[in-house]
Simulated scan of single mutants.
Amino acid sequence: MSATASSGSPSATPSPTWSADQAAAIAAVDGYRAASDQIGSDPSAFSKAQMTSLLSKWAGPAVVKANVASYLSLKKRGFRYDTGHSVLSTLASAASDTGYGTEVVVTRCIDQSPARVLDANGEEVSEQELGYQVSQFLLRQYTVQKRDADRAFRVYGLAPTKGECGPA
């Protein structure tokens, strides 16, 4: 796996040279996270169809379905994410042939300590009311594939993973 420390500010750590497939897979994760942030920051501004359309550019059907259900739940409850995060590190596996396309596994450590969930009045929602915890650091593994029928890489799976994630 190749690694880089990437965030909103320049890093003293040199960035690796990604292969074209690794770079495209990382771009798909970036696009997916940007679309997710856009919807999550104001779910009430999106219809189910708009959420689906925006996420479908960057993610496969099962990921889109799960995300849209989550955002519709937030919308119904009048909640939204007050986001803020920075990528602390990105790892990308070498591209592999799956038989139906190309796969790259992208692992990200994200500092999301500024993130909160707010209600319609702008008040912070408690973990108990929300039903889950928004963790300070998120270590997530994205399965990114360019399937034979796809024109670009998309996120087909994501899951928490074990490892170190936090400030260096």
Rank of each mutant, 00 (worst) to 15 (best):
H85I: 05
T90V: 15
Y100W: 11
Y81C: 05
S89L: 08
T83H: 03
A69Y: 07
G99N: 07
T98H: 06
L91P: 00
Y81S: 12
V68P: 12
V104I: 09
A92R: 05
R80D: 03
K76C: 10
V87Y: 13
L74D: 09
V63D: 13
V64W: 01
A92T: 01
Y100K: 15
S73A: 13
A95M: 06
D82A: 14
A95E: 09
Y100F: 10
E103C: 07
G101I: 00
D82P: 00
S73Q: 12
S96T: 15
S86W: 00
D97H: 08
T83F: 05
G101L: 05
S73M: 11
G78V: 02
F79M: 13
K75Y: 00
T83C: 02
L74M: 14
T98V: 11
G101C: 08
Y81N: 13
L72N: 09
F79T: 07
L74K: 09
G84S: 09
T107S: 13
Y100E: 13
G99Y: 03
L91Y: 15
V105C: 01
G101M: 04
T90W: 00
V87M: 10
V63E: 08
A66G: 02
S70V: 13
L91I: 01
V104S: 08
K76T: 11
G78A: 00
N67K: 14
A95C: 02
D97W: 12
L72F: 04
A95K: 06
Y81I: 11
E103S: 10
A95L: 01
A94W: 07
H85R: 15
Y81E: 14
S70L: 12
S89D: 05
A69L: 12
E103Y: 01
S73D: 15
E103N: 12
S96L: 08
T102S: 08
R77G: 09
S89A: 09
D82K: 12
Y71T: 08
D97M: 04
T102L: 04
